[in-house]
């Protein structure tokens, strides 16, 4: 069974990483005068996304559903979060590499092209969706139903296989 204090701590860490992600997405453009600073922020942001993905997987492993071997059920239930996290991580890394490549020599240069603008929009939209799905999953995993055998689980299992 998940301890309340442990869950609070994990939830706090997840929200901290999410807010860092949101902060960098919002204000990284303002810090572009120092490319090294921006690079470090981007690297930490990508690592934070990766950490968040690792944490959510560890939380999955901790559930009764996973330990009972119903991995498919769990992944089916949260596949939106998993796919979005993976997509967002890929988009973030691509956008960061592209932007840093263009601005490394001259940070005050106008670098925008149609392609970069499109990638930027998709990356930022994915960030919002990722934030929503991730937050929802993290909060949802606090439900004790995931940590014990229950009628709900049996019905979910029957429904999943039915």
């Amino acid at each position: 069974m998940l301890q309340t204090s442990n869950y609070s701590l994990v939830l706090f860490l997840q929200f901290l990483l999410l807010f860092y992600d949101l902060f960098v997405n919002s204000f990284s453009e303002l810090l572009r005068t120092a490319p090294a600073v921006q690079l470090v922020l981007f690297i930490i942001q990508d690592i934070a996304i990766l950490f968040n993905v690792i944490i959510i997987f560890l939380m999955f492993f901790n559930t009764f559903i996973f330990q009972a071997g119903l991995v498919n059920l769990l992944f089916h239930k949260f596949k939106g979060t998993i796919l979005l996290s993976a997509a967002y991580l890929a988009l973030s890394i691509s956008f960061h590499i592209w932007v840093m490549n263009l601005r490394w020599r001259d940070s005050s240069r106008f670098v925008w092209t149609e392609g970069l603008q499109t990638l930027f929009v998709f990356q930022r939209l994915a960030a919002v969706l990722y934030c929503y799905f991730y937050k929802r999953t993290a909060v949802h995993l606090g439900d004790p139903l995931f940590y014990q055998d229950s009628l709900w689980l049996r019905k979910e299992f029957a429904q999943f296989h039915g």
Binding site: L22, S26, F27, E29, L30, R124, Y132, R136
Partner: peptide, 19 residues
């Protein structure tokens, strides 16, 4: 700065509305 603040507020508002 205005654009950055817009994005921050819009993100939180959108997530909250989705919730």
């Amino acid at each position: 700065p205005a654009q950055s603040l817009f994005y921050l507020l819009l993100s939180i508002s959108t997530v909250s509305a989705f919730d």
